[in-house]
Amino acid sequence: MTDIHPFYLSAAGELHTLVPDSAFQFGVLETMRAGHGKIPLWEFHRARLQRSASLPSEDLNAVSASLEQVTSRTQNWPEGARVRLRYGVLQDTGTDKPVWDLRVEPLEKASPWTNGVLLGLCGTRLTGDATRSPFAPGTRSLGGGSEHAELYGCKLLVRDVYTRAAAEWPARATTGEPLLEPVLLEPNGAVIEGIRSNLLLRIGSDWVTPRLDQFGVRGVMLRWLAGQVEISEDTLYPSDLAKADELAICNSVRGVIPARLLASTPEVLQMDSQIQSPVRPGRATSVLQALISEELW
């Protein structure tokens, strides 16, 4: 089989490389999955992109046309593709006109998420600014709360708080072991999200997810799932994670992944036997995974 290589697209056409995220003054991000000639959640990504950045029609049409090229070029990639769309304003260009680009790379034959994830609580606290639209007029002077709820829940290119949270836990790359997903709380201690995912708690016969009206990214996979099964939102704390009958995370590239809460701290993680064994999906989590396989990919 011919080797599969990443490729890069922008308004200027195909590129050999892309500038780093740090080259942007501000912007938003959409990370999508492509495969079998489609991007199954594009309508939800597009809706969040428009809510976050209010793209003019010419930009949105150009992005959509390039994504058609992406689906055509990746339709025979055996594991599908990860598509990273950036839309933002570059630094030091003398213009505030936003630009966009796409990074398209193959998904791994053996997913690093296969063995589930371990949830590690972070001391870094999530702020409303971390997911508030940088494009809305006067955004930086707005207070929190439902009055400006439409400005929140965006996925930003500037992800400093997530970088700091990730740095609290050691990187794990051991084959056969679960990945570690750092979990962010808001200033009052309520659980919000993983650094790459939304959280799902199975409590009795119900699925519950943390409230995302003032903090956290309103995930596309979470939105899709909420249209298929009943998922309620509530204020949740670490004790709720500990008591849940099942834990899972979800995102738009990996779907639903079973999770387990770590009792250890970063300092003693390497001595914790929990890190060795895979996290197996419970019955309710398996139902969600099957739904995604049947309906999306």
Rank of each mutant, 00 (worst) to 15 (best):
R254N: 14
E267D: 15
P278T: 00
A248L: 06
A263Q: 10
N251Y: 06
V279A: 04
P278N: 00
L247H: 05
A248S: 11
R283K: 12
L269K: 03
R280V: 14
A248E: 09
G282Q: 05
P258M: 03
G255F: 01
R283H: 12
P258E: 01
S273P: 14
L247V: 05
L269M: 11
S273K: 09
V256W: 01
L261E: 04
L262Y: 12
G282L: 09
Q270M: 11
A248H: 10
P258R: 01
R283D: 10
P266E: 13
N251S: 08
M271G: 13
R280C: 14
S252F: 03
L247Q: 02
L262I: 11
S252G: 13
G282K: 03
P258A: 07
P258W: 03
L247I: 05
P266R: 11
P278Y: 00
S264W: 02
G255I: 03
E246R: 01
R280K: 12
Q276V: 13
A259R: 03
I275Q: 11
L269H: 05
V279R: 01
S277G: 03
S264I: 07
V256K: 01
Q276D: 14
S252L: 07
T265D: 15
M271S: 14
E267I: 14
D272H: 09
L262Q: 11
G255T: 00
L262P: 06
R283I: 14
G255L: 00
Q270S: 12
P281Y: 02
L247F: 02
E246Y: 09
A263S: 07
E267P: 05
V268C: 09
T265R: 12
D272L: 05
V256Y: 02
E267G: 05
V256M: 05
L269P: 07
M271F: 14
L269W: 09
R260I: 07
L262W: 07
E267S: 15
M271R: 12
P258Y: 02
L262V: 09
V256S: 00
I257H: 07
R260H: 06
G282R: 02
